[in-house]
Design a protein around this nucleic acid. Structure first.
Lengths: 209, 209
DNA sequence: CGAATATTAGCACGATCGTTCGTTTTAATT
DNA sequence: AATTAAAACGAACGATCGTGCTAATATTCG
């Protein structure tokens, strides 16, 4: 029954989504238009459109792709680090490097979409908020593990610290545009050192390399 | 030379800008279209358009209005507080209340515009970044005064703390959409208490009312 | 009050948007 | 190689955008 011969279609769809990710990372999710996407891939407008039943489905596909990319580039590699503070630091470090990558551009599309769609009800908004929530929970989980490993102080509220770290990484994007990469990186590292330094247990020596 | 009889024109222009402020606060600066602005004010599209030579000039006028409103609602009243930590706390408190006002909506249009236009060169982007920079400097100045008044620790980097406070208030907006006003306010107050509490001089008793 | 001028409406333009539809080309199956 | 299904194209649609241009209306000044 399943016509297992759906090869070419899925392949070009991946190409389209990949290109769409680059565009929406630079210019935002609703600046991403089907026309420019067609031109960027060398296809016709209707050819691109056919792969997604609607513009909204395209936006959802881009969000899914962005979340997958973020997980692969940040969370998965961090899993190779030791449980606790090292893993948490690895997450933050890779998050920062990802934001820095490719010059000034390449902000997190999901973070940008969260601002763009926060007042526009619909499936896009809900999926964006869902992914932001997921990200927050993952960070909180890493913090919780660091507490259990006695790398961070026992009484600590994991979600509160996750909130502050998330705020810091979000502010990093704006700081990049305002003051450039060096100043922004320096600011974030200072804050990170102060926050985590004041919350670490005396046992955990954390020389933020 | 100056035909000092420009009364009606300036008046309706103010009305238009005021209405434009509400719309762009809810939906963003480039969702603000001349057509919807005409409908919202009961005028014709070209009637609205005539007051601004171009859409770009309209956007600049909205930015100026937003900055003026923010100054009037946050900085000016805070000047009535005593120099130092009380004034800094007043700024943050009024900033928070302003963000909370009018239900969930009414995010700072400038903060939203900073994300929308950060990759689009032009006069709008430059003015947005200018206002963000101004805001940051004002906060840093308040911090500096608090240091000089010996309310905050002497060695402190005023701009670094201003960065963290700005990050916190920016994160507050997203937290509002994600978790609602009560949770968001609680999160921000916790962070504020921890940050300022750890940086205050022992002399300054700061019961965050 | 009448004349001058500032303000608004009405209409049309080119461009671009998402979307639909029929056709043609390309790929997979028999 | 012939048949069938998937994939891409090309043209057109209605809508909406910003922006001119001209005529009608308010408002102000002499």
């Amino acid at each position: 029954m399943k016509p297992a011969h759906a090869s070419k279609g899925a392949a070009t769809r991946e190409v389209i989504v990949a290109r769409a990710l680059e565009i929406s990372a630079e210019r935002g999710l609703d600046a991403l238009t089907i026309g420019m996407l067609a031109e960027a891939t060398g296809m016709s407008k209707s050819g691109v459109f056919a792969h997604f039943g609607s513009r909204e489905d395209l936006q959802l596909a881009v969000l899914d792709g962005a979340a997958r990319e973020f997980t692969e580039q940040v969370f998965v590699p961090a899993l190779r680090e030791r449980r606790g503070l090292p893993r948490l630091l690895a997450i933050l470090e890779r998050w920062m490097q990802r934001t820095l990558a490719d010059g000034i551009r390449r902000a997190c599309p999901i973070g940008a979409a969260a601002v763009e769609f926060d007042d526009r009800p619909g499936p896009v908004r809900e999926r964006v908020l869902g992914y932001v929530l997921h990200l927050r929970r993952e960070v909180a989980r890493a913090v919780q593990i660091a507490i259990e490993q006695e790398h961070l102080q026992p009484g600590l509220d994991a979600h509160q610290l996750a909130f502050e770290l998330h705020a810091l990484m979000t502010a990093f994007v704006l700081e990049l545009k305002l003051f450039g990469p060096e100043a922004a990186e320096s600011r974030v590292r200072s804050s990170l050192a102060r926050i985590l330094g004041s919350l670490a247990t005396p046992a955990a020596a954390s020389p933020a390399h």
